[in-house]
Nucleic acid binder design. Structure first.
Lengths: 132, 132
DNA sequence: GCTTGACCTTCCAGTAACTGGAAACACTAT
DNA sequence: ATAGTGTTTCCAGTTACTGGAAGGTCAAGC
């Protein structure tokens, strides 16, 4: 399996698959006689694993950790759960931030007439406050 | 007002204030005889405006646009509202994505016993799916 | 006058996670 | 033989800064 087929099967671009091997996130695949990368089922499964983990917002470094656990027959599910729980908390925090952002901006947008006059609560609201 | 005082008043680091002038987001401040940057009230207000806009998640390029409108006595509030509304839609989308991410990950975390055995629904859930 | 320390300057490099593109080689089909 | 696509490496660019080095400036204290 060449890199196009493999990355396509994993839902990644060839560039990204190459990149993941370059940075040592996944093992470097075998090479054909002419130097083409050659992927097997196991390598594709790892790429899928990484893609999914990235979609969940895990950083490359966390993906490295998770992939280590993915391959470790001796792993404890507690280790995995710890990482995922931390990530879950980050998501929850981001959600809260996004919510207050949304509310505040929606409030400004609501207050703005959106006509051809210059008076604009959005502009005023953006310039209003000092550091804090 | 030297750069420390100005950036502090605006809630930014000196590095960032320098950076904003370097990329032409805000006008380059005047210089003292010895070459120190010298900020006045108007420059500080612009820095505040940019900080607030950045906090709202507007990109540098959008900040450029907004700052243009901020300074434009002929602006129409409709122009501002258009940009803010677009941003609001992006936030709403991000919120939805984050929500489904949260639900999916929370589901996996719930299903994981978190003990010292290797069986782990989180790992399984990450590796499970093909591209899509 | 001199030193100390805080502040300022410029410039270069690095961050995260890729993405785009150039130049050259490989493979497949006609 | 040639065209077209796929692959290789390598370098640069993206976003929005941040860190750090090397050196100039300023105010205070002795």
């Amino acid at each position: 399996m060449n890199i196009s087929a493999a990355s396509k099967a994993a839902g990644l671009s060839a560039k990204t698959a190459r990149y993941y091997a370059d940075i040592g996130l996944v093992p470097a695949p075998a090479r054909s006689e002419s130097g083409y990368r050659s992927y097997d089922g196991a390598s594709v499964r790892k790429l899928i694993f990484v893609r999914r983990a990235r979609e969940f917002g895990f950083s490359i470094s966390e993906c490295r950790e998770l992939l280590g656990l993915y391959e470790d027959r001796q792993r404890s599910s507690a280790d995995v759960k710890r990482i995922a729980t931390r990530r879950l908390a980050e998501i929850a925090l981001k959600q809260k931030e996004l919510q207050s952002l949304h509310d505040e901006l929606a409030h400004l947008v609501d207050a703005c007439k959106g006509d051809d006059r210059p008076d604009c609560p959005i502009i005023d609201g953006l310039g209003a406050r000092r550091a804090g």
